[in-house]
């Protein structure tokens, strides 16, 4: 969970960094779009049942590595900022953290074959 707290902070940092770094419009728009997405996915993955949502951040974070080149950033600080945040978020996405609760096999157990919750239900006596 600590990793996803840091990712949420990194997302919020992207939202405020254009004002602090006096970024131009292209950089500011990109950061203002990607920042809230990263922060939201990170916050959702604070809870164990939705910890998998942390991986949704791989896409916006990978875009941060490409954006300076695709959008043609001219400011070195902005390039470094986006790429550093992108790299950190990608690394922290893979930190799953502690999951103590059991969820009957989780989300894939809704459609997967012979899910854990069905196996356990079969073992319980009926009323």
């Amino acid at each position: 969970m600590w990793a996803q707290i840091i990712n949420a902070i990194l997302g919020i940092w992207l939202m405020v960094s254009p004002a602090i770094l006096a970024s131009d419009k292209t950089v500011a728009n990109n950061d203002h779009i990607i920042g809230p997405l990263i922060a939201a996915f990170a916050v959702i993955s604070w809870w164990e049942a939705t910890r998998v949502v942390r991986l949704y951040n791989l896409l916006p974070a990978a875009w941060l590595l490409l954006a300076p080149w695709v959008l043609g950033y001219s400011d070195t600080t902005a390039i470094l900022n986006d790429m550093a945040v992108g790299l950190l978020v990608i690394i922290l996405c893979f930190v799953k953290g502690k999951v103590d609760a059991r969820f009957g096999g989780g989300w894939s157990a809704i459609w997967g074959k012979d899910p854990i919750h069905a196996q356990e239900a079969a073992r319980q006596p009926r009323v």
């Binding site: 609760a101 059991r102 969820f103 009957g104 096999g105 157990a109 356990e120 239900a121």
Partner: peptide, 8 residues
């Protein structure tokens, strides 16, 4: 729920 350790 079956396969869980708490009730949500």
């Amino acid at each position: 729920p079956p396969g869980w350790n708490y009730n949500p």
